[in-house]
Amino acid sequence: MFRNCLIIIFLLIFCLSLPVQGQNKKKILILNSYHQGLSWTDNIVKGIKDTLKPLDSEIDYYIEYMDTKRFYGDKYFEKIFKVV
């Protein structure tokens, strides 16, 4: 849980600080361990969007759910690590 928060914070800082040539909008990837609809996950996404609300017109959000609450195991985690 703590690791996921650190990853999200890192991505926010990294994505907001990179100059993107030819594009006006920043791209932010929000990577969640669990699924949409889980209150904990939804609250994190809401908190990120609420915090960045003043910059809303300058941001494109991309949200991915690994859904490790429902899908897990060595084979599943190997696939996730290959993608990351």
Results as ranks from 00 to 15, higher is better:
Phe2Met: 11
Arg3Pro: 13
Asn4Leu: 04
Leu6Ile: 11
Phe10Lys: 00
Ile13Glu: 15
Ile13Met: 07
Phe14Gln: 06
Leu16Arg: 01
Leu16Trp: 04
Ser17Tyr: 14
Leu18Gly: 08
Val20Ala: 06
Gly22Glu: 09
Lys26Gly: 02
Lys27Pro: 05
Ile28Trp: 01
Ile30Gln: 02
Leu31Val: 05
Asn32Ser: 04
Ser33Asn: 12
Tyr34Pro: 02
His35Glu: 13
His35Asn: 06
Gln36His: 09
Gln36Ala: 13
Gln36Val: 12
Leu38Glu: 10
Leu38His: 06
Trp40Cys: 09
Thr41Met: 03
Asp42Arg: 01
Ile44Asp: 05
Ile44Val: 11
Val45Gly: 03
Lys46Ser: 14
Gly47Arg: 00
Gly47Leu: 07
Ile48His: 03
Asp50Phe: 08
Asp50Tyr: 06
Leu52Cys: 10
Lys53Leu: 11
Lys53Arg: 06
Pro54Trp: 03
Leu55Tyr: 13
Asp56Asn: 08
Ser57Met: 10
Asp60Gly: 00
Tyr61Phe: 13
Ile63Asp: 09
Ile63Asn: 06
Glu64Asp: 14
Tyr65Thr: 01
Thr68Val: 13
Tyr72Asp: 13
Gly73Glu: 12
Gly73Thr: 12
Lys75Ile: 15
Lys75Cys: 06
Tyr76Ile: 13
Tyr76Trp: 13
Phe77Trp: 14
Glu78Asn: 01
Ile80Met: 07
Ile80Trp: 04
Phe81Asn: 00
Lys82Met: 08
Val83His: 07
